[in-house]
C-alpha cells in the first residue's frame, strides 16, 4: 500500500512542485515588472503632476516630450554613449580575451585585475573618474606639473565633450566583464579544430579571424544584450561623473525621467519618457533575440 501511495505522491509532487516553486517569482514579476510597466504606460496618458491621477488625457505628454529640447539632447547623448560604449567594450574586451588566450604566465592574476572594475558599482567608478578627469586636480594637473604646460584634457568640463568622458568610464568598467565572457567562449571551442587548422597551415590571425571569432557568435549576442541594456538604463554612472552637466550637456534619458517624475512634479511626462526608453530597449532587443532564435533553429 505504502509503495504505491508514495509513488502517487511523488508523481503529484513532480507535476506540481516546479509550478509551485516558480509561482511566487512568476507572480512577483507579473505584478512588479509587467504590472508596473502597464501602470507607467497608463500614467503617461494622464495629466499627472505631483501625484498620480488617472483621467485620460491622450498624447499631450508625448507631444510635450517631443517639443522638449532637453529630451532630444538626452536622446542624442544616449545614441552617442550607447553606440560608442558597446563598440569600444566589444573591441577592447575581445582584444583582451584573445591576448589572454595565448597561454601566458600569471593569466589568473591578470584576469582578476581586468575583471576587478566590474566588482565596483558605477557610483564608485563615476566618482573616481570624476577626480581623475577634473582639470584642476586630475590628469591635466599631473601632466602640467610634470612639465607639459600645454597639455589640456578638459572634456569633463567641456559641454561638447562631456558625454565622451562617460564613455571612457563606462568602457573601463565593463570591458573586463566582456573579456571574461569572450574568454569563456574561446575556451569552450574544441582544441582539435584549431589543431586541424594548424595542420592545414593556417596562421594564428587567420585561425582567429576565420574560425574562432565566427564561432563566438552566441557570445556576441549575449554581450550585446547585456551592454545595450546597461547603456539604455545608465543613470548612476552619469549622475556620479558629470551630474548630467555641464548644463544639460551629458543628460541621458534615465536622468531626464528621474528629474521630471520625481523632482519637478511632472509625473506624466516622466512616465512618457520612461515609455520611450522601454520602446528603445524593445527596438534593440526584439530584432536581436529574433536573429538569435532563428540562428539557433538553423543550427
Amino acid at each position: 500500500m505504502s509503495a504505491s501511495a508514495n509513488q502517487g505522491l511523488r508523481a503529484l509532487a513532480d507535476r506540481w512542485l516546479p509550478k509551485l516553486v516558480l509561482s511566487p517569482t512568476l507572480a512577483a514579476s507579473l505584478i512588479f515588472v509587467y504590472g508596473f510597466i502597464a501602470w507607467t504606460g497608463w500614467l503617461s496618458f494622464t495629466e499627472s503632476r505631483l501625484m498620480p491621477r488617472f483621467e485620460w488625457a491622450g498624447f499631450v505628454q508625448y507631444q510635450a516630450l517631443f517639443e522638449n529640447e532637453r529630451w532630444w539632447t538626452a536622446a542624442a547623448n544616449l545614441g552617442i554613449f550607447g553606440s560608442l560604449f558597446i563598440v569600444c567594450c566589444l573591441v577592447v574586451g575581445l582584444l583582451m580575451a584573445i591576448l589572454l588566450d595565448q597561454k601566458i604566465r600569471a593569466e589568473g592574476a591578470l584576469r582578476t585585475i581586468y575583471l576587478y572594475p566590474m566588482a565596483l558599482s558605477f557610483i564608485v567608478t563615476g566618482t573616481a573618474w570624476k577626480w581623475m578627469l577634473n582639470p584642476d586636480m586630475g590628469l591635466q594637473k599631473v601632466m602640467n606639473d610634470l612639465g607639459f604646460a600645454n597639455f589640456t584634457f578638459d572634456w569633463l568640463v567641456n559641454p561638447d565633450m562631456s558625454i565622451y568622458t562617460v564613455v571612457i568610464a563606462g568602457v573601463w568598467q565593463s570591458s573586463g566583464f566582456v573579456m571574461a565572457l569572450f574568454l569563456a567562449g574561446l575556451r569552450g571551442i574544441d582544441d582539435s579544430i584549431i589543431k586541424a587548422a594548424q595542420v592545414d597551415g593556417a596562421s594564428l590571425p587567420t585561425i582567429y579571424r576565420r574560425i574562432l571569432i565566427p564561432s563566438l557568435r552566441p557570445v556576441f549576442f549575449s554581450v550585446l544584450l547585456i551592454l545595450s541594456h546597461i547603456a539604455i538604463k545608465s543613470f548612476d554612472l552619469v549622475m556620479a561623473l558629470t551630474g548630467g552637466g555641464p548644463g544639460n550637456s551629458s543628460d541621458v534619458p534615465a536622468i531626464f525621467m528621474y528629474q521630471f517624475a520625481f523632482t519637478r512634479g511632472q509625473l506624466g511626462q516622466g512616465a512618457a519618457s520612461a515609455m520611450m526608453m522601454l520602446f528603445t530597449i524593445v527596438a534593440v532587443l526584439v530584432p536581436l533575440m529574433y536573429m538569435e532564435t532563428r540562428s539557433a533553429k538553423r543550427v
Binding site: R49, N68, G245, Q266
Partner: peptide, 19 residues
Amino acid sequence: MPSATEGAMVDVISQFMNS
C-alpha cells in the same frame, strides 16, 4: 513659479551658461 516652469527655465539658463 510652479516647479515644472521653474525646471524648464533653469534648463535654458544653465544651457546658456554652458554653450
